[in-house]
Design a protein around this nucleic acid. Sequence first.
DNA 1: TATGAATGAGCCTTCATTCAT
DNA 2: CATGAATGAAGGCTCATTCAT
Lengths: 199, 199, 199, 199
Amino acid sequence: MTKLLTKRDKATHERRKHILEAATACFVEKGFHQTGMREIAKRANVSLGNLYNHFPGKHDLLVAFADQEIVVTEPFIALLERDVPAQDGLKDFIKSYCKGCSDQEAAILFLDIAAEAMRQPGIAKRFLKVRANLAVALSSLIASGVADKKFSLTISNFDMANLILDLIESSAARGAIEGITSRELAPRIEAMVFAALRN
Amino acid sequence: MTKLLTKRDKATHERRKHILEAATACFVEKGFHQTGMREIAKRANVSLGNLYNHFPGKHDLLVAFADQEIVVTEPFIALLERDVPAQDGLKDFIKSYCKGCSDQEAAILFLDIAAEAMRQPGIAKRFLKVRANLAVALSSLIASGVADKKFSLTISNFDMANLILDLIESSAARGAIEGITSRELAPRIEAMVFAALRN
Amino acid sequence: MTKLLTKRDKATHERRKHILEAATACFVEKGFHQTGMREIAKRANVSLGNLYNHFPGKHDLLVAFADQEIVVTEPFIALLERDVPAQDGLKDFIKSYCKGCSDQEAAILFLDIAAEAMRQPGIAKRFLKVRANLAVALSSLIASGVADKKFSLTISNFDMANLILDLIESSAARGAIEGITSRELAPRIEAMVFAALRN
Amino acid sequence: MTKLLTKRDKATHERRKHILEAATACFVEKGFHQTGMREIAKRANVSLGNLYNHFPGKHDLLVAFADQEIVVTEPFIALLERDVPAQDGLKDFIKSYCKGCSDQEAAILFLDIAAEAMRQPGIAKRFLKVRANLAVALSSLIASGVADKKFSLTISNFDMANLILDLIESSAARGAIEGITSRELAPRIEAMVFAALRN
DNA sequence: TATGAATGAGCCTTCATTCAT
DNA sequence: CATGAATGAAGGCTCATTCAT
């Protein structure tokens, strides 16, 4: 019975999604504060007034973006939860996540949004939740590796998971700025991570 | 002959420095794009017109800030270049740099400026140079550890140095957002780094 | 044959009345120009589109309000037309009308609408008609007082009636602003009016 | 030493006055809420940005207008303070004040501003102060008439003064709407007032 | 009749920057 | 070097109104 969406509801939802994509594209290109609502409306082929019907303020675009971010991390979580040896799973994840974070656009957006989040606790909370999901999944994988005696650590699995994520995100972002590709970067990170896991 | 600074030159230089400090304070409080030139002028107790005499545009404040950043990293470099066993030097550095990056203000500023830098190559170059200095100093320290057979790595010293810096900066920034202190964070980072260095 | 109102017509009429009340409430709270159509629709529990079905424009709400104003003055006219000695009738009217005009909400609305009326002759006409009814009733009462030799004036009854109404309305409005109650005000007005009527 | 106004200060002051006049003219023509800042700027031949240099917000234009209102009432106060028999002074005042309030523009502005004042206590206070000055001057005149045994009242001089002012203002405003001139109106008011003063 | 998404002009305000003094 | 008035484009947002459903 959850499918009682009229054609109109569906169209509205589509529109919302469409606007959000346009907004994201603008934020990537020019940054959050450099993007005007008019610009977003134009890019989404929506009148300015109607943009405000769907998102009551610029802030809400950010929130919606943050909420949607969870979708972006889903594939990475799926990767972490596959039923493969921990070492293989970790390698694949590092390569894949590093690539994901290395994208110029992703890096720009990450910094821009993170900067904004520092000043808007509401935004920060949403991002941290998404991030925590990732850390939990990664620490599960680490735990399974520890159980198999493949890994051994002196700090908690969860703390290690967070450090690994920090490392990947930060390196990838810097790589994007300096022009280092994820193909160069991933092996270095992998080496450091596996060393840290005493493998 | 480089000392032919008149009293006036000196005063001018002081003024510049004073303005830059005011600007930095504003950027920390509200962000680069959210700070107006008027605001900076007021905070620096300088007239708006005069602010423009010292810095021909808002962009130049950013450049000056970036150039000055080198001063901020000096103590960390000094720490890395002390004549102590590599392990001790590294520990001290991690603790100190982590603390430096954990400061809420520092974290905000870092993100804000980094986001801006992504779009202004000129700015990025300056920051990367400062950062490279740090990486060089750190890789020297690592090298000395390797020479003493305390460390052993599978990737280049310089790459490892960069990864370590990435790790510290990123973790510290996240810590600042999540409310984790550098005192909690530093030991974890230390553990991971030393594990990665096979100590 | 004028009673061929279907149930539907009646419902429609009710709806109109309901909307008008909501609009009036909004105008009182925020002023005519500060009130949005959306707001009125929401307050009346009517969809925006439907609001426009009942009132084709914001202007029409004002007109309808003006037309309805006649209802508000009915009790005062009834008071003036009672079969009591002119002096008593006048005293009662002053007290009652002064109280009616002293209401903060009434005062706000009066000023707001009057200001609007100054620019929209159509609106002004409606208000003046209502007001004229009041003046006529009051001058009748004065006339009966004159006939009984209780009053004696040097200007026409109608002019005097208008002056009295002006006096009450203006004093009451000022009282509402200054925080003077109608209980303090009415006796003063009464004194002045009766003096003017040579009583 | 109060004349240390530079040429610039004077120009600034002139500009301010000029803008205020333009704003007043706009308010008269279209009403406070119907007038846009752009419109005022254009009418004052000032750039929009500069308008905001002189008046930091629309609200401040209203405040400035209110503050300046005191100037407008000065001639009436002077009229009340002349050294002439109270009866003559009063007659002249009624005629003059009635004429002043009868002006269409004045009436419009009065209503518009009064409506605004009802919602902005800060504005109301300023207007009431000006008005109180007038009432004080008028009650002095009444007092002198009482001393000369020309007037005799049953309420306080000050209350009577206020009632008289209310009467004039309200009648004049209505006259402006209905198209009654102050020349017709003033004698009626005079009659009523003098009757009320038992002359 | 009833709904609310859609429109785009308009609102108040802020901004980086210039320039006459 | 120092001042702050002046500029006008751009900012986020609201509005009365229309119209397809």
